[in-house]
Design a protein around this nucleic acid. Structure first.
Length: 505
RNA sequence: UGACCCAUGGUGUAACGGUAGCACUACUGAUUUUGGUUCAGUCAGUUAAGGUUCGAAUCCUUAUGGGUCAACCA
C-alpha cells in the first residue's frame, strides 16, 4: 500500500510483482486474493509481473557471477553452512568448495539445472565476505535445488533463486527506481546493492519503512492463521479479522481505509496505531453516505392511548448529510416498539429519554409522554401506556413544547425481524503479542454478540450488500454477504460515538 | 555482549540549521427532531548530557531506551 501511496503522491507507477521464487509456498489462490484486495481498495497497478518471468535472465546473471569468480557451488549441508557462517559476534570462515575453478563451477551449476542432484545436495553461493558483520553478506545462498512444481513455470526448473537473488534483480530488470519494503529488510540492502553493482545492471534503490501495527489485534500471518485454524474466527474474512477481506465484510469502505492509511503515514520507528483512528475514519465516511434506518434492538411495547387514527404515513429523510438521497415513508400507529434502554422508571438526572411523566420525541413523528407502566408478575416492564401530542407532528410542530430526547422506534403493526451481529475488538489488550503467555488468552470473548430479536422498519427489506446503513442512534451496519435468503443479517461496522454512555450514565 | 535500525504531546505524523505544526484521543462550551453530525475552544511534546553555531528537533560525540540480524522463507 505505501507503494501505491507513493505512486499517487509523486507519480510514476506501481508494478504488482509476486516474488514467487519458492515453488512450495506459492499458489494461484493466494495471488488472486491479493489482486482482489488491491482492486477493492481502488488501486491500480501498471503491470502484473512475477519474478518467475525472469528465471532465465536470473540464471544468466548467476553464470556471469561465476565467470567473474563471484559465485561458487557449495556441496555442504545446510547445517555445515550454518556452522561455517559463525555468529553475529564471531566471524565465519570459508570451506574448500569456495576454491573451485570457474570451469568446475560452471559445469556443476549447469548440472544442478539439469537435475543431476537431489534437493539440498548443492547450492550456489555468492563469494562476498565470510567475516562481514552483516550475517547476510557471509556468502549468501543464491540458488537452491527444489524438485517441485511451480504454479507458473511448471516443471521447467529444479533450481530456484533465493529472494535475495531475485528481488533486486527483478527490480532492476523493470527499471524500478524506488523499491519499498519493511524494516526487516534493511540488512538485505547491502546484498541488494552488492549484487546490482557486480552485475552492472540498472541501479534500483531499496527504501525501508516500519510495518504499521494496529492496537487490539494481531497482524502476524502466523497468528492470524492460528485464529482461523483454532476456530476463534470463522475464516480469513471474519469481520473481526484485520484483513482486507475482513474489513470489507465488516462494512468498512475502501475510502475509509485509504483515508486511514493517509492519516497514519509512513515512518521508520516502531509504532502502535490506535484502533480508534480507524473507527474515526469509518464513521467520517459512513456518516456522509449511510442511509438512515430505524431498528429497535431490544423492544418494549408502547401504546398511544389517545391515538384515534388507524395509521398514518410519515416522511423521513434518508440521510440528513445528503439531500440527494431523498425521503421515505414510515407508517405510524397506536402500537409501537421502542428500545428497552430508552425507558427508566427511576431515571438519574439528565436522563433525556422516556420515564414516567417525562416527554420525548419519537423521531420523524410526535412527542409522547409516558403515563403508565405495565409490568408482569416478575416486575419486568412489558408495556408503556403513553399519550401523544397531536400538534407536535414532525415538520409541523405548533405545540411549542421542547424536549431534550429523541427516540427511534418501529411500528408494531408493520416491521420486519432481522439478525444483528455486533462486533467488537478482537483482543482485550492493546498488544496481545507483547503480553505474557499465549496471545489467545487475551481474546475478547465478547467480540461477537448475535442478536436475533431485532425489529426493523420495512424499508430495510430492500437492502443489498453494497448499501451502508446507519441504524439511528445505534451505529453503522452492512448486510452480511452470507445472509440467508429468508433472513437479513446485518454486521455492525462501528458504533456511533456515544457521549452519554461515556459519561457513565 | 558484535553489527545495524529507530527515538517529537496519550497515539500517529510534520517542521531548506531560523515561530515545534496537523490529525486522532481526552476535556469545555454552542448548535441539533440521532446524547450522532457540525462549530468554537482547552490540556498536552522534541529521551538525556555535552559539543558545533548568532541560532539545533534537525549536524557531531557519548549515554539511555526500544527494535532487528545466525531459514536451502519472503
Amino acid at each position: 500500500m505505501p507503494e501505491f501511496w507513493t505512486d499517487k503522491k509523486f507519480g510514476g507507477g506501481t508494478n504488482l510483482r509476486f516474488d514467487d521464487t519458492n515453488p512450495v509456498t506459492e499458489d494461484t489462490e493466494y495471488v488472486e486474493s491479493i489482486k482482489e484486495d488491491i482492486k477493492w481498495l481502488g488501486f491500480e497497478w501498471k503491470h502484473e509481473l512475477y519474478a518467475s518471468d525472469y528465471f532465465e535472465t536470473l540464471y544468466a546473471y548467476a553464470v556471469k557471477l561465476i565467470n567473474n569468480k563471484l559465485a561458487y557451488v557449495d556441496d555442504s549441508s545446510s547445517e555445515e553452512i550454518a556452522q561455517q557462517k559463525g555468529t553475529p559476534t564471531q566471524p565465519g570462515h570459508r570451506n574448500q568448495y569456495a576454491e573451485r575453478s570457474v570451469a568446475e563451477n560452471l559445469q556443476l551449476f549447469a548440472d544442478m539445472r539439469a537435475g543431476k542432484y537431489k534437493d539440498g545436495e548443492k547450492v550456489l553461493r555468492a563469494k562476498i565476505d565470510m567475516e562481514s558483520s552483516n550475517m547476510l553478506m557471509r556468502d549468501p545462498i543464491l540458488y537452491r535445488i527444489k524438485h517441485a512444481h511451480h504454479h507458473r513455470t511448471g516443471d521447467a526448473w529444479c533450481i530456484y533463486p533465493m529472494y535475495d537473488f531475485a528481488h533486486g534483480q527483478s527490480d532492476s530488470i523493470e527499471n524500478i527506481t524506488h523499491s519499498i519494503c519493511t524494516m526487516e529488510f534493511v540488512p538485505h540492502r547491502e546484498v541488494y546493492d552488492w549484487l546490482i553493482e557486480k552485475l552492472g545492471i540498472f541501479p534500483s534503490k531499496q527504501y525501508e519503512f516500519a510495518r504499521r501495527n494496529l492496537s487490539h489485534t494481531v497482524t502476524s500471518k502466523r497468528k492470524l492463521l492460528q485464529l482461523v485454524n483454532e476456530k476463534y474466527v470463522s475464516g480469513w474474512d471474519d469481520p473481526r479479522m484485520p484483513t482486507i477481506a475482513g474489513y470489507r465484510r465488516r462494512g468498512y469502505t475502501p475510502e475509509s481505509i485509504r483515508d486511514f492509511c493517509d492519516r497514519i503515514g509512513v515512518g521508520k520507528r516502531d509504532n502502535m496505531v490506535d484502533l480508534g483512528l480507524l473507527e474515526f475514519c469509518a464513521r467520517e465516511h459512513l456518516n456522509k453516505i449511510a442511509l438512515r434506518r430505524m431498528v429497535v434492538f431490544d423492544p418494549v411495547k408502547v401504546v398511544i392511548t389517545n391515538y384515534e387514527k388507524e395509521s398514518e404515513l410519515l416522511i423521513a429523510e434518508n440521510n440528513p448529510e445528503d439531500s440527494n438521497t431523498g425521503t421515505r415513508e414510515i407508517s405510524f400507529s397506536n402500537e409501537l416498539y421502542i428500545e428497552r434502554e430508552d425507558f427508566m422508571e427511576n431515571p438519574p438526572k439528565k436522563y433525556f429519554r422516556l420515564a414516567p411523566g417525562q416527554k420525548v420525541r419519537l423521531k420523524h413523528a410526535y412527542i409522547i409522554q409516558c403515563d403508565e407502566v405495565v409490568k408482569d408478575e416478575a416486575g419486568n416492564v412489558t408495556q408503556l401506556n403513553c399519550s401523544y401530542i397531536p400538534e407536535s407532528k414532525s415538520g409541523a410542530d405548533t405545540s411549542g413544547i421542547n424536549v431534550k430526547g429523541t427516540l427511534h422506534w418501529v411500528n408494531a403493526k408493520d416491521h420486519i425481524a432481522i439478525q444483528i451481529n455486533e462486533y467488537d475488538r478482537l483482543f482485550t489488550v492493546e498488544n496481545p503479542a507483547n503480553e505474557e503467555g499465549e496471545f489467545q488468552s487475551y481474546i475478547n470473548t465478547n467480540s461477537l454478540t448475535v442478536l436475533n430479536g431485532a425489529l426493523a422498519e420495512p424499508a430495510l427489506k430492500e437492502a443489498v450488500i453494497a448499501d451502508r446503513f446507519q441504524f439511528l442512534r445505534k451505529g453503522y451496519f452492512v448486510l452480511d454477504k452470507e445472509s440467508p435468503k429468508d433472513l437479513l443479517v446485518f454486521n455492525r461496522t462501528v458504533t456511533l460515538k456515544d457521549s452519554w454512555a461515556k459519561a457513565g450514565k
